[in-house]
Amino acid sequence: MNAWEIELIAARGDREQRAAAREAARGRFRRVRAGIYVPADALAGGSAQDLHLIGMRALALASDRPLVFSHWSSAVAHDRATLGNRFGRVHVTFSAPGLRSFDRVAGHVFALQDCEVEEVHGLLVTTIGRTVVDIAGAGTFEEGVVTADSALAGGLTRDRLDHAVDLAGPRRAWRSIAEVVAFADGGGKSAGESVSRVTMVRRLGLHPVLQHPLFDRRGRIGDTDFFFPDEEVAGEFDGLVKYLDPRYAPMGAGKKAYDEKVREDRGRRVTRGWARWGWAEGRDARLLGSILASAGVRVSRLVR
């Protein structure tokens, strides 16, 4: 589904609202917000991000004044990675506390300059740099790093990110923001890789090379997510999205799994060790440390 293109049905007046409510009771419509509906069958297969984006569009349609979507909502609009479930409420930044009068809206009160706001498919959202700053200040370190890595990987330059920090101005969470920005690296290609790197660096004291190219006599094998040059060990984060999302597996999960096996077989011949892990291990220092040690990485830091 394309959440930007799904039709929003605005029921104006009592008669239209009653008719829409009847269609919803029959299962033909899905109520998104008071007076705003979508065809129920259009939501099939939608992700949490898709549904959140539809909620943003519905809120903008229902509002009697322009709204600036920010934080996790802006990250969704920019198609940047996020961590955790922050999609229960739409995130909007207001200039004053008294303006926060919407249902199911997480209102944030911060000053915004015109250059920190842009339009994406008709919605006003904070720029990606400002979005990173806001998430880094309001979320956990991991959440901030995931979106910051994704923004840098998507084309945001380090200079523009630093400029966004300066534009946002001082706030209570400035130290958290500075730590996230300093740690961020565009080599993180997925949320799972970013979380794994946080665990490696902050919990295990490891500093792998990101997106390291591997070659054999046949040519380039590909880039491995992590590489430990001293031990010549490759590490790969494996999430389900790699196999189930058509963007990464256009020929299907089976073909993707086969291609990954061929790639790993070639990679193992030019490395001294190969490690794979998923979400549970990537967030658990003891589990990830054990996997890496078994592959040959020297893990010496005591996990707290």
Score class of each variant (00 low, 15 high):
Ala24Trp: 07
Asp134Glu: 15
Pro97Val: 08
Gly122Asn: 00
Met56Glu: 03
Ala40Cys: 12
Ile36Phe: 05
Glu118Pro: 05
Thr147Cys: 11
Ala148Trp: 07
Asp50Ser: 07
Val76Tyr: 02
Arg100Tyr: 10
Leu99His: 10
Gly137Phe: 14
His108Pro: 01
Ile135Arg: 04
Leu124Thr: 01
Ser95Gln: 09
Val32Tyr: 02
Arg28Val: 07
Arg26Phe: 08
Ala81Leu: 13
Ala151Ser: 04
Arg15Ala: 14
Ala25Pro: 08
Glu16Tyr: 01
Val117His: 07
Pro66Trp: 01
Asp103Val: 12
Val38Phe: 06
Gly144Pro: 00
Thr93Phe: 01
Asp114Arg: 11
His78Gly: 14
Ala42Glu: 08
Asn85Met: 11
Arg15Pro: 05
Gln49Pro: 05
Ala77Pro: 02
Leu124Ile: 03
Ile128Lys: 12
Ala62Trp: 00
Val132Gln: 08
Gln49Val: 11
Val32Ile: 15
Leu124Cys: 13
Ala44Ser: 13
Gly88Lys: 11
Gly107Asp: 02
Arg130His: 12
Gly45Arg: 05
Ile36Cys: 06
Leu83Thr: 02
Phe29Gly: 04
Phe102Cys: 12
Arg31Thr: 03
Ala40Phe: 08
Gly88Val: 07
Thr93Lys: 05
Leu61Ile: 12
Ser47Cys: 09
Thr126Tyr: 07
Gln113Ile: 08
Gly45Val: 07
Phe29Asn: 11
Ala96Arg: 15
Leu152Phe: 08
Gly55Asp: 00
Ser73Thr: 11
Ser73Ile: 12
Val120Asn: 14
Asp50Ile: 05
Thr147Gln: 09
Leu8Thr: 12
Ala42Val: 01
